[in-house]
Amino acid sequence: MHLYRDLRGTLQPFWVTLRNMFRKPVTVQYPEQRQQVAERYRARLILTRDPDGEERCVACHLCSAACPVDCISMQATVAEDGRRYAAWFRINFSRCIFCGLCTEACPTLAIQVTGDFELAGRDPLKLVYEKEDLLVDHCGQEPDYNFYRQAGIAVAAPRGGNPTESAPEDPKSLLP
């Protein structure tokens, strides 16, 4: 019966809405009530340091290549001891969409996401974060990882001096 179906379809919603009117709203009243954000929540980005307290970022540009909105820019330099680092490093958070692709791309786990989502402000230029705003004094979510101790490059320790590395072979020892 079409008529029965139509009448039912018209009248039933009224009961549903009336019933819901007397239920407690699910709204979180934001500034007063705050929700604990999820552990892997993606918000403001940081540049972390390795366990030795040195900058992790090697200015490889992989994050800026991965960024779908092109909001990361930097200038690469090399220090005296052969350590690459970013002379300046800039993220424009007014463009960032917090997709986290940069953190996926980063080989040194330098760039990481945090749960701090309260970035809003009236001046968009204040959302352009420089290296000193981004750099933090801890290791973020990866407390043990040190790129230079895995990569076989003699910066943190001489070659072969790291626990997971064996000493370099002496090719001359193979000579007859």
Binding site: L18, P25, T27
Partner: peptide, 8 residues
Amino acid sequence: LARMQLRY
């Protein structure tokens, strides 16, 4: 309207 949609 908000209350019927579980908002404030």
